[in-house]
Each structure stands twice: as C-alpha cells, then as structure tokens.
C-alpha cells in the first residue's frame, strides 16, 4: 500500500518558483489500476517521480508498505526501485544496443538471479506481452507499440509491487495505445501489481479503474470509474472525491 500525506514539492526555474505539488494526500491499495490525470503543469509527473523515489519531497511523506521513503538513503532508494518499482516511460527508453530480450531481462540481471531463472522469466514475460517471436530484435527493428511492450515487460519482469507509467501512450497512435492499455490491464489483473499511470488523454482515463485528477498541484477529484463499476476490475477499497 502507498500512503501519501501532505506532499509538497516546488521547483525553481530561474527567479520563478513553481509549486508543483501543494499538499497531496492519497492512499493507493495493492493491485489498483489508477490513472493520475490532469493538464500539463498540474503535477502528474512530479507525483509519479516522488512515488517512484526518483525525487524527494519538500514536505509531507510517502510510505510504501509502511516504509517512509524519506528516511531511506540514496543506496536504499536505489535498491527499493530495483526490487519493488517498475517504470514505463513515455519514450520507451530502451537501450538501443540490446535486444528486446536483453532489455526486458536487464532488471533481473541487477537482482542477480541465475541464468536459467533469468531466461525462463524473460521468455515467459515476452510471451505475456506477445513478443516471443521478436525477442531477439533490437528496438530499432520494432514498432513504437512493440517497443512499449518491451518496456512493460522490463517493468514487470521482476514482479514489482508498483509499476509507474508516465504518459505510456503519448508517443503511440490511438489504436496501439489502446492495445498497450489492454495489455497493462490484463497484466494488472494477472500479477496483482499496482499500476499508476499519468495521462491527459481521455481514452487512457477511460481505461483506469480509479481516476485521480490533479489541478495546480492539488487533487481535484479522486473517484472509481465506470470501468470498475462495470466489474472489469474491482478495487479493494472505496474512495471519495477530494478537493
């Protein structure tokens, strides 16, 4: 579970101080499929970065499984990210010299698993994302959608507790974007991994089971979506709208 209390973050851009987050409270249960939505500058990426321990908050706290990440050292945060958090980036961020297989298996290499386990898990995850036939291709030989599937495989291969995806479909056409969201939703259900993705795209918001809207660094609304209500995915808790 992720517990966020009174989260504030400001950036300085020259003489200007930008209040990216101005006091965010949020609780995310394990296995949620949650979208953080809002216009540009609303604080979506900042919130994802803070949850992903890529940045530190000015005020407030983030607890992941009762652990206050603010109390962790840089090395401990790196280990936390290595073991518990997967990332999917807008521009895929695959390593061009590695094959799809090598890109996907890279987080397992960091965890020091055996060669056999690495191979078995990589083949399995590549099958799950539908790229078993293309796993020896390099990113340049894959389409945008296929590259994002590799990125999702890379995020999920270590069975993390949380997958953070910053605008995962922004660089894809709508059809491919929808395929990716379908895949994420299936994998969310299958692995019970918490998916948190930021977007300003209505189609993506429609996929979320829970939608948190940010505006000017504050939560504008937090609600379960019709998709949840329709039973596609049932969250383990109820939430109310927060101003």
């Amino acid at each position: 579970m992720i517990q966020i209390k009174g989260l504030k973050k400001q950036y300085r851009s020259g003489e200007t101080v930008v209040q990216a987050l101005r006091g965010v409270d949020l609780e995310i249960q394990n296995g949620e499929f949650l979208s953080i939505a809002g216009p540009s500058g609303s604080g979506k990426t900042t919130l994802l970065n803070l949850i992903g321990c890529l940045d530190t908050a000015d005020e407030g706290s983030i607890h992941i499984d009762s652990t206050n990440v603010a109390e962790k050292s840089r090395k401990e945060l790196a280990l936390l990210r290595r073991e518990k958090i997967g990332f999917v980036f807008q521009s895929f961020n695959l390593i061009p010299v590695l094959t799809a297989y090598e890109n996907a298996s890279f987080p397992l290499s960091l965890l020091g698993v055996t060669d056999k386990e690495l191979h078995d898990r990589t083949v399995k995850i590549m099958q799950e994302v539908g790229l078993e036939e293309m796993m020896h291709r390099k990113p340049a030989e894959l389409s945008g959608g296929q590259q994002q599937r590799v990125a999702i495989a890379r995020a999920l291969i270590k069975s993390p507790e949380i997958v953070l995806a910053d605008e995962p479909t922004a660089n894809l056409d709508s059809e491919t974007g929808q395929d990716i969201l379908d895949l994420m939703e299936v994998l969310n259900a299958k692995h019970n991994t918490t998916f948190i993705f930021s977007t300003h795209d209505q189609m993506v918001m429609d996929f979320a089971h829970r939608l948190v809207r940010l505006h000017d660094g504050l939560i504008h609304s937090d609600e379960l979506t019709q998709r949840t209500a329709a039973g596609t995915k049932v969250g383990s808790r109820s939430v109310g709208s927060r101003a």
Binding site: K75, A78, R81, R82, P107
Partner: peptide, 16 residues
C-alpha cells in the same frame, strides 16, 4: 544522459 536516468530509475547505482 536519458539512458543514464533510466538506468538509475530502474535501480542501478551510480557506481555501477
């Protein structure tokens, strides 16, 4: 540099 950022995000330490 972006790749370095990605590697660090995925848990690689600076010295690695």
């Amino acid at each position: 540099i972006r790749e370095i950022g990605m590697l660090r995000a995925l848990g690689m330490e600076r010295h690695e």
